[in-house]
Design a protein around this nucleic acid. Sequence first.
RNA 1: GCGCCUGUAGCUCAGUUGGAUAGAGUACCAGUUUCCGAAACUGGGGGUCACAGGUUCGAUUCCUGUCAGGCGCGCCA
Length: 586
Amino acid sequence: MKAQLITLIKNALSDLINQGSLPEMDVPDVQIERTKDKSHGDFACNIAMMLAKPAKMNPRQIATLIVDAIKKTDFITQIDIAGPGFINFTLSADSTQKIIKDILAAGNQFGRSQIGAGKSVQVEFVSANPTGPLHVGHGRGAAYGSVVSSLLKATGFNVHREYYVNDAGRQMDILATSVWLRYLEACGEKFAFPSNGYRGVYVLEIAAVLHVSYGDEFHHSAAEVFADIAADEPQAGDKEEHIDALTERAKQLLGETGYQQVFKVGLDAILADIREDLAAFGTEYDEWFSERSLMETGVVDKAIEQLKAADVLYQKDGAWWFKSTDFGDEKDRVVVRDNGQTTYFASDIAYHLNKYQRGFDEVIDIWGADHHGYIPRVKASLVAMNQDVTKLKVLLVQFAVLYRGTEKVAMSTRSGEFVTLRELRDEVGKDAARFFYVLRGADQHMDFDLELAKSESNDNPVYYVQYAHARVSSVFRQLTERGLVWDRDLGEKNLIRLTESHEQELLSMLARYPEVLESAAINHTPHILAHYLMDLARDFHTYYNAHHFIIEDVELSQARLTLISAVKQVITNGLTVMGVSAPETM
RNA sequence: GCGCCUGUAGCUCAGUUGGAUAGAGUACCAGUUUCCGAAACUGGGGGUCACAGGUUCGAUUCCUGUCAGGCGCGCCA
C-alpha cells in the first residue's frame, strides 16, 4: 500500500517537472507514514515540505500542485492538504477491509516476507563461559538473540544460530581444579578451599558425580596437594597465583589423561545444563562451536600465520603482538604469550575468520555491553586479513541491573551468589521472562526487579497479550455452546458492515503487522514487536468491551467474528516469533 | 584520563530513522458487570523531553559543549 502511494506521488512529481510547473531539481526520497491521528486520514506524506527549499515555493502551494496531479484511483477516497503542507490520504473501506481476507488466507504465514531471501546470516549469542549455570544476566542475551533470529527467519533470511563454547583457557582450568578439590573433600580430605575457585553448589554436585564414577582414582592427600603451594589471599598471598599453582599441581598429580578426565566431567556437566536450560527457555541453536576445536585443528595457528604473512605482528617482551593500532584500535594486543600459549583473542580472530570462510553474507555477534571495548580489535583483525568488515555487525545488549525491591543484587559467578536463569524461569515462567526481557530496546539499561517479576507476575504485560488471544478463543467456545458456527465466507462478504471506530482502529492496526515485523527484523529491534502486540491487544480489549460479537444481526455478527479471527491470527503469529505461547485458555 | 551506552510523567519505559496537540504501563483519584472471561474497560490529574548553544520550514530525534549515571580500558576469558 505504501509502495503504491509512493509510486503515485513520484509519477505526479515527474509530470509536474516535465510540464514546468515545478523547477528541475533533485527530488528526495518520497516518504509515506501512517498517521498517528485518524483525523489525518490513513497515510501522510511530507514531500511538499521537503521540496519547499529546492523549489523555492510555499509548501502548501506545492502540495496543491501534487494533489491535482495525482492520478485518481479507486482505493483512495480522499486526499487532503493539512497543517504546514502534509498530504493526507484516506483509503477506501474496501481496501482497508481487504487486510482481513489477506490474514485469514495466509494464516500463520501472514506477515512473513522475503526481503532477506537469498541472504545467509549467522547469529552468535549468549556464548557464556561453561564455568557455571546461566544466570539472569544471560537471559537477556538469550531472549534477544533468539527473537532477532526468529525475526530474520520470518523475513526470509537463512539464519544460522550459534553458541561459541569457551572450552579452553584459564577459566576452564580453574573450574576443573575447583571440581577436583571438591572431589578431594568428598574423599574426606580437609583444607581451605581457594578464595578464587568456583564456589557454587553446582561444583559440589559435579564433584559428587566424579566421585561416584571414578571412585578414589584421583584421590591424593591434602598434604601432598598443598605442599609448597603459594599462599592464598586470606593468608596475605595472591589468590591468582594460589589457584594457578593448584592447577599446575592437579596436572602434575593426575597426569595429562587424568586431568583431562576431570576437566571433561566438569565441562560436560555444565554444558549439558546450559543446553537444557536454553532449550527450556525456548532458545534453539543450530550449532555449538567449540573453541578447543579451533586450537586442535590448527585453525588458530593458521590465522596467526596469516597475520604474520600480512606483516601485522611483531615480537616484544617474548610475546607476539598484533598491530591493531594501525587499524583504529587504541593499543596493540597480544596474540601469543611469552609462554607460547595463544590468547583468547587469537582464538577469536580464528573464529571470526572461520565464520567468514563459511560464506555467510552477514555475521551478527550479540555481546554484553561489557565487551564493547573488544569490537575495535576484532574488526581490526578482519581488516588486516583483507576481509569485508561491513559484513560483521556487533549488537550490544546493555546490562540488566538486578533489584530485589529497591535493593541492588550483587552478582558473581565465582562466589556462587547469583540468581540463575532456571530459578527465574521456575518463578515467572518462560513466557513472562522472555517477554519481559525483550520489552526494552537492547541499548537501554534495564532495571530488572525480581520482586516485581516474581511476586507480581500478573502485572507482566505478557498476560495482557495472551489474555486477548484467550478471549477470542473464549468467544468461539461460547459460539459453539450456543449451537452456532462461524461462517467465514459470509463474514468476508459482510466486512463492509464494520463501520464502528473501534473496528476501523483494529483494521489499520492489523495492516501494520507486516511493516512492524520487517522493521523489527532489519533494525534488530524485537521490542517494537512486543509493543505492537500490546497495542493490538489493547485495541481488541477496548473493542470487546464496547461491542458484542454474538448478536441477532447474523451478517454483522459474522463480519465481527471474522475480524476477531484475524486479530487472533496476528497475535498468534507475533507471539510465535517471540517464542511465547498463545494459550486458548488461561 | 580515553572509549561505548543512557538521561522523556512519582516509578519502569516507548516515541515509526527530522513532522501535526510528546505517548503507554504502573502508582494515585473517580466510575463500568441481569449481556461473548473484570487477568478487562472508561474518565481524570501528572512534562522546562538533563542543561546550554547550533543546523532548518520544523528538533525529544542530527551536531558541539556541560552536567549526571552505567559499563569498559589485562600476556583473564
